[in-house]
């Protein structure tokens, strides 16, 4: 049997978390492959944390934040993008696909968009297959 993909989604406390709770209110199911972790801001997810996720066997990691002009803390999305770029260079060296780590952002009401993006991300990871890292 093929092993199921494991995806980690870090959700910022503000707009993304609203989308996520919105999904619940509208009975929109979350893909079973996705595990959600709430963080105070997308910038909280540092390179070491991203690497930790891959070390523990994540096949893909999605950082979900706010739009740049909408960030509660000012610089969250920019820092998140920077951490992702940094991590991607390391993934390159490790021979893992760069797209295994991605950033998306939402406004507070975009629950459906979040849902479809989550599905798309899982599908994308499925095309990559399981990560060679055995957690």
């Amino acid at each position: 049997m093929r092993q199921r993909i494991k995806v980690l989604a870090f959700l910022c406390n503000w707009a993304p978390w609203s989308c996520y709770t919105g999904m619940g209110e509208q009975w929109i199911p979350v893909p079973g492959e996705v595990n959600v972790i709430r963080v105070i801001c997308a910038a909280r997810v540092s390179t070491p944390l991203l690497l930790k996720a891959f070390e523990k066997g994540a096949d893909g990691v999605l950082i979900v934040g706010c739009r740049t002009d909408n960030c509660q803390h000012g610089t969250g999305p920019d820092l998140a993008e920077r951490n992702i770029d940094h991590t991607r260079e390391i993934l390159d060296l490790l021979g893992l696909e760069r797209e295994r780590v991605q950033f998306t952002y939402y406004l507070a009401h975009e629950s459906e968009k979040l849902s479809s993006d989550l599905h798309r991300f899982v599908e994308k990871m499925e095309t990559f297959g399981k990560s060679p890292v055995s957690g």
């Binding site: 540092s46 390179t47 070491p48 944390l49 690497l51 930790k52 891959f54 070390e55 390391i90 390159d92 060296l93 490790l94 021979g95 060679p132 890292v133 055995s134």
Partner: peptide, 22 residues
Amino acid sequence: SHGGAMFSLMRMMSSPGIRQNR
């Protein structure tokens, strides 16, 4: 130090399936 990032790298490198590109 460094949030344990170095240790994540070392442990990832001990996976049999890993194929680095370094």
